[in-house]
């Protein structure tokens, strides 16, 4: 064993392997554990063709799915001070941020976009779970505030797609404050008489659920998504009981009255377009006017 065999050889092998052994062309469904060819998975919107399990969808793919022709305009979110606490656990938060930025190509965990959805302008804010578990820090709060302002300025509905482990603890109490800031954001949309629709995807937990995610005029979830306040492990450790089957799944929340509907990813856009059309008639002239009664 020497430097050549330990370091150089694996690197060369890795380079060669990329072409000859395409083991990354197959994904394993985390639910049914069957193998899925990656193109089939993408073509099926990252829903398992065998068991219908909804795998996580990145923010950009989500936006492409929701906007007409996959075309949308990204909205700038104001810059925020990085790492206000100079937080450090086993790793510096500043390094974690830079790594996440390098890996995802995004500045933070939420993307805001505007575009046509079913022929009408809509603003969508989507979480990228790949960015530090979709955790909510100041930048996510600012993204929500920006999205809300854009929706109000355009008189457009505001759709938020969640995928988040909750507050970003590396920002300490500042991340907690985002629960208030994001609530302010969605209230602005509601006060402007515009619809605020939430689509909860796997997972949506903690401070994200306990703020803007649960405040939707209409609450939608993807099948099987874990949605809750406390993590399952924390609950088990606290009460020392086994959790009921399906606990904190979208269907469980629907049963307990916490959601309006559970919608398959394939039907999501059409359902959003229909709902928005129902709560926001296209122009006032086409709205139904009460017929004057004779007399």
């Amino acid at each position: 064993m020497n430097w050549l065999t330990n370091f150089v050889r694996p690197k060369i092998l890795a380079l060669v392997r990329k072409d000859s052994a395409p083991d990354n062309l197959w994904d394993k469904c985390p639910a049914c554990e069957r193998m899925i060819f990656h193109r089939d998975l993408e073509a099926n919107l990252r829903v398992c063709p065998h068991c219908d399990h909804h795998l996580q969808l990145g923010a950009k793919a989500r936006l492409a799915l929701l906007f007409d022709g996959g075309i949308y305009e990204r909205q700038d979110v104001r810059g925020v001070p990085v790492d206000p606490l100079r937080f450090r656990d086993r790793k510096r938060y500043g390094d974690r941020l830079r790594e996440a930025q390098a890996a995802t190509g995004e500045r933070d965990a939420m993307i805001v976009a505007a575009g046509a959805m079913g022929g009408r302008t809509a603003v969508v804010a989507a979480f990228d779970f790949a960015f530090i578990g979709g955790s909510m820090g100041t930048a996510v709060g600012d993204a929500l505030l920006e999205g809300a302002d854009q929706a109000v300025a355009r008189g457009a509905p505001f759709v938020v797609v969640t995928a988040s482990g909750g507050a970003r603890m590396q920002e300490g109490a500042l991340s907690l404050m985002q629960m208030a800031r994001t609530t302010i954001a969605v209230d602005k949309v509601k006060e402007a008489g515009l619809p605020y629709i939430v689509v909860m995807t796997n997972p949506t937990t903690g401070g994200v659920t306990a703020s803007f995610a649960m405040l939707g005029d209409i609450a939608i979830a993807e099948p099987g998504a874990i949605i809750g306040f406390a993590g399952a492990r924390v609950i088990e450790e606290t009460i020392r009981q086994t959790l009921p089957p399906g606990f904190q799944r979208a269907e469980y929340l629907l049963d307990h009255g916490m959601l309006d509907m559970v919608v398959h990813r394939r039907e999501l856009k059409e359902r959003l377009v229909r709902l928005i059309g129902l709560v926001m008639p296209a122009t006032s002239s086409t709205a139904l006017v009460p017929v004057a009664t004779a007399g």
Partner: peptide, 15 residues
């Protein structure tokens, strides 16, 4: 953090 609290919408109540 309990089953009953989650069932009755702890997150919604806080929000």
């Amino acid at each position: 953090p309990g089953i009953d609290a989650e069932e009755r919408g702890q997150a919604e109540a806080i929000a």
